[in-house]
Amino acid sequence: MLWYILKRLLASVGTLLVVLAITFFLMNAVPGSPFITEKSTPEQIAAANAKYGLDKPLIVQFKNYLVSYCHGDFGVSLKMQEGTPVTDILFHQGKFQLSIKLGLIALLVAVIIGIPLGCIAAYNRGTWLDGFLRVVTTIGVAIPGFVLATLLLVTFAVKLQWLPTISGSLDSFNVYVMPIVSLSFYYVCYLSKLTRTSMLDAINQDYIRTARAKGVTTKSIVIKHALRNSLIPVITYIGPVIAGIITGSFVVESTFSVPGLGKYFVQSVLARDYTVIMATTFVLSALVIFMNLVVDIAYKIVDPRITLSSRED
């Protein structure tokens, strides 16, 4: 178990390095620099480049990034909040916490509502309830997140004025309702569809027939025998769901003006604020990769067929 986790951790660090390298070299491939404005002279730009070490060879710059990241130093913002340490921007201004809070709640909602819905649909296969859920989930996975977000915004915040837009206070729970609904709705539908298929798949397995032959009640067959087996493939999809929720946060945070990490990342890319791009990419990738690791381990725990000590995976 420990060996497996260590191995996976190592691989994760590798992936993270690759992501950072890709980001860094892509970023530097962009013509232009964070210091070009309409008024700036070549001298000013050169001076600014020198100040932040952007005149050094790329490989040296990249090494410097890695070294300072190892010390927990993300550098200072070059443009958006010039001179402010990126660590302050991301963590002390509450962006990271806000995004994590939104993301985790959305994930929880997706899992807690999506999976049981899938079970209910599978259990009532062929009834009107199943039909209804199928229609809703099929449409649900065809609605882009930003469409839902904007529709919610117009309906509940602008027209009906039931819910506040987030630009107001961040303390009230109501503020989070719409962002969380728009973030999680797609994944509620997605997981529900997946669970239904996987559940029906499990119900057709030979061991379910065995259980029926033993005289196990239908309820117990679904809850004990089918559910756990059907969750195994569902768990493997939680990884992409997490990545998707982070992606979705870019749109949702932009739509609801949530001052979170996703919105900030998009802005930093558009503004070419190198240090902020690198730091946000690092934080978000680390998050996704770490969550994938957690999901993988959870997978191995649910499925006893996979032994953690051996190297097969």
Binding site: A29, A243, F250, R272, L284
Partner: peptide, 22 residues
Amino acid sequence: ELIYSIPEVLVVLLLQVVLKDP
């Protein structure tokens, strides 16, 4: 596997900005 584990949307966003001008 490596490409699979990259959070691709982050890279996609960068690519969009990077590729446009060239």
